[in-house]
Simulated scan of single mutants.
Amino acid sequence: MSSGIPLLKAFTVLLVVILTGFYACNNADKPAKEDSNKPVIKQFSPAADSLRKLVLSNPDSVTYRQQLIQQLEKDNQIDDALKQNDTLQQKIGDNAVVWLNKGSLLEVKKDTAGAIDAYEKTIVRQRNLQEAYIRLINLYTEQKNNRALQLIDYMFRNELAFGVETDLILFRGIYYAKIKEYNKALTCFDQCINDKYTFMDAYIEKGALLYEMKKYKESIAVFEKATTVKNSFADGYYWIAKNQEALNNSKEAIDNYKRALALDQEFTEAREALKRLGIIK
């Protein structure tokens, strides 16, 4: 589920104003000495390598280190990013941004329990950090944990939902769908669409749920509406095709799989469907 969750980039500016009294650079900031066996030197992207040099030259710069952590995450150098985050914590203390970084990195490592723990620590240290709540809600929703609903309600009650109201309602719907309270889920998805008719994720969730419920014609109607709103919506045509195939309307299904693939050449599921139907090799 794609939900437009904000990323850690937004916190670079925040870090500039965090505590200015830092400790001296520790050993983590010093170049590693080569031993007689000449170990293989880890390769970093040019962007990460430039930032590493800036950090070595400016070990007390929170901004450079935070940028390095973000770049290492982007490069999937997660263990190195975690080490840099540990050093950042040593310098600025037990800060919310450090725990937010850690949660994001542990998510990439598929350590869901660790990520949840880190995000929970984040919101204890900074109660109004919207991103941490969103990330927690996402993980708890996937686990079918009703703490997701508690956090959604908390955000609405405490004026933390500004700008993400529709996303929160969508999460609520996804949670209900996962625990098979389908009517509540559909009500949430309808609310999302009514509040923001261009919110394609809501159409996908509603239509996919109707497909799961074997209400194929109703699902088609949802995706036809979505493709009317956005005629370049490849996912919409793909789901129309899936429903048509379920209704044994192979010719129409093939046409819509082709349309989805024409709009998105990287649409693997549409390509595989056409292969399965013998249209392409």
Rank of each mutant, 00 (worst) to 15 (best):
G4S: 14
I5D: 07
A24N: 14
C25M: 13
A28C: 11
E34V: 12
V40E: 15
K42R: 12
Q43K: 15
Q43C: 07
F44I: 07
L51E: 01
L51G: 02
T63K: 14
Q66S: 10
Q71E: 15
Q77P: 01
I78A: 03
K83N: 13
K91H: 07
W99A: 00
K109L: 15
D111A: 11
G114P: 01
A118Y: 04
A118R: 11
R127Q: 01
E131Q: 03
R135H: 09
N138Y: 10
L139G: 07
R147L: 11
L149K: 12
L149A: 07
L151D: 02
F162Y: 13
V164H: 00
L168M: 09
I169K: 06
G173K: 05
I174N: 01
K178F: 11
K180P: 03
A185F: 08
T187Q: 15
F189C: 03
K196I: 12
M200C: 02
D201L: 09
A202N: 09
I204P: 00
I204G: 00
A208T: 12
L210H: 03
E218G: 10
A234C: 08
A241Y: 12
A246E: 12
N249A: 05
N249R: 15
N249C: 02
A253H: 03
N256S: 06
N256W: 08
N256I: 03
A260Q: 04
A260F: 06
A262E: 15
D264P: 09
E272T: 07
L277P: 01
G278W: 14
